[in-house]
C-alpha cells in the first residue's frame, strides 16, 4: 500500500475562484506593505551597523538587571532579549544584547567590550560572551546595497532564462510569482518583527529558486499540453497541467518541509530565523506557482499555434529538451 498525499488523479478547477486567491494575495501584500511602512523591518546589525553580543551564563537572566548594569556605560540604544531553545541545557541561559552603532564608521572597540563584560559580570557572575559581532555603519550601508542588487539580479536572470526557454508570457507569470513571494516574505518579517539580516537575503534567494522550480515544472507541463491539446481553451489546459503535476508538487513540498521543519526544531536558535524564512517561502512558493503564476499566464494568454516555424522566434532554446 502506497502513501498517497492526494488521490490518484484529480480534476480541481484552480481558476474557478481565482478572484478569491488573487484577493487573498493582494490583501496579504497590502498588509505586508502597511507593516513595512509603519514599523519597518527589524534589521540586524548587518544592515544598520551596531553590535550584538551573545551571552551565556549559569544564572537565570534578569533583563532589567542587565539593562541597569549597562546604563552607566552610555552606549545609546541597547536592547536585551533572552533566547530560549530546546537544545539548551538546564543551566544554560542565553541572552542577546544589541547595541546601536557608535558614532564613527568603525566597529566597536575591544575596550568597550571589556567594559560591557565587566558590567554584566556584576549581575551575572561568570557570564561568557560566546559571540560578539560588530559591524560599522560604513559597511552595513554597502551590505544593504549588495543584498538588493543580489535579489534584483537573481530575478532578472531568471526572467531572461525563462524567456529564452518558454515565451515571454511564461516569464512574466513566473516573475510575478517570484516578486509575490519575496514581498510576502519580507512582509512577514516585518509583521512579526523577526530579525532581518544577511542570512535572510540568502533565504530570500533560495525561495526565489524554489518557487521558480515549482513554477517551471508546472509551465513545462503546460507547454507540453499546449502541443497536445491544440483545441482546448487555455484555462482547461492549465487546469489539466496543474492537476497532472499536483502529486509531484505536493511530494516535493512535503519532503522539503520535512527537512526544513526538522532543522527549525532541532537546528538551534542561531539559524532559526533563516529556516523560518525558507519554510514560509516553500509554502508561499508552492501556492504562488499555482495561483499566481498560472493565473497571470491565463490573463496574458499564449500563442497557441506551435506548428508554424515563425512562432518559435525568440524561443530557439525551447527544443533542447530530450
Amino acid at each position: 500500500m502506497r502513501l498517497k498525499l492526494i488521490p490518484e488523479s484529480t480534476s480541481f478547477d484552480f481558476f474557478k475562484r481565482w478572484k478569491l486567491w488573487l484577493g487573498i494575495s493582494a490583501v496579504m501584500i497590502i498588509v505586508g506593505f502597511a507593516s513595512f511602512a509603519l514599523q519597518g523591518l527589524n534589521y540586524g546589525i548587518d544592515f544598520r551597523g551596531g553590535t550584538t553580543i551573545r551571552t551565556e551564563s549559569t544564572t537565570a537572566i534578569d533583563v532589567g538587571a542587565y539593562r541597569d548594569a549597562l546604563q552607566p556605560l552610555e552606549l545609546g540604544d541597547v536592547s536585551i532579549s533572552e533566547v530560549f531553545d530546546p537544545t539548551f541545557e538546564e543551566d544554560q541561559h542565553v541572552a542577546m544584547v544589541r547595541i546601536q552603532a557608535q558614532d564613527d564608521g568603525e566597529a566597536i572597540s575591544g575596550e568597550q567590550i571589556e567594559e560591557i563584560n565587566r558590567a554584566l559580570d556584576t549581575v551575572a557572575p561568570g557570564i561568557k560572551f560566546v559571540s560578539v559581532e560588530s559591524v560599522g555603519p560604513k559597511v552595513s550601508g554597502e551590505l544593504v546595497q549588495t543584498a538588493v542588487i543580489a535579489v534584483a539580479l537573481a530575478i532578472g536572470a531568471v526572467l531572461i532564462y525563462i524567456w529564452l526557454r518558454f515565451e515571454w508570457q511564461f516569464a512574466l507569470g513566473a516573475v510575478a510569482a517570484l516578486v509575490h513571494d519575496v514581498v510576502l516574505t519580507i512582509g512577514v518579517f516585518s509583521e512579526l518583527q523577526i530579525k532581518f539580516d544577511l542570512a535572510i537575503i540568502a533565504a530570500l534567494l533560495t525561495i526565489v529558486g524554489y518557487s521558480l522550480n515549482d513554477t517551471v515544472v508546472v509551465f513545462d507541463r503546460v507547454r507540453e499540453n499546449l502541443r497536445r491539446y491544440k483545441k482546448k481553451p487555455l484555462a482547461e489546459v492549465l487546469n489539466i497541467s496543474i492537476n497532472e503535476t499536483l502529486s509531484r508538487t505536493m511530494m516535493t513540498s512535503v519532503t522539503t518541509l520535512l527537512a526544513l521543519v526538522s532543522l527549525y526544531v532541532l537546528g538551534g536558535d542561531v539559524i532559526r530565523g533563516f529556516v523560518f524564512a525558507m519554510i514560509w517561502g516553500v509554502i508561499i512558493g508552492t501556492y504562488s506557482s499555482i495561483f499566481v503564476a498560472s493565473t497571470i499566464l491565463l490573463w496574458l494568454g499564449v500563442k497557441r499555434d506551435w506548428t508554424k516555424p515563425t512562432n518559435t522566434t525568440g524561443n530557439q532554446f525551447a527544443n533542447i529538451d530530450a
Binding site: 543580489a150 537573481a154 529558486g209
Partner: peptide, 29 residues
C-alpha cells in the same frame, strides 16, 4: 526522457540563484 526537460529547467534556475549568491555574498552566505 519526458521528465528531463522539467528537471533541467528547474535545477538550472535554482543554480542561477546559487551562482548569484556566491558572487554577491560573503562568509556564511
Amino acid at each position: 526522457s519526458k521528465a528531463l526537460s522539467a528537471i533541467l529547467d528547474a535545477n538550472i534556475t535554482t543554480f542561477i540563484t546559487a551562482v548569484i549568491l556566491f558572487a554577491m555574498g560573503s562568509g556564511p552566505v
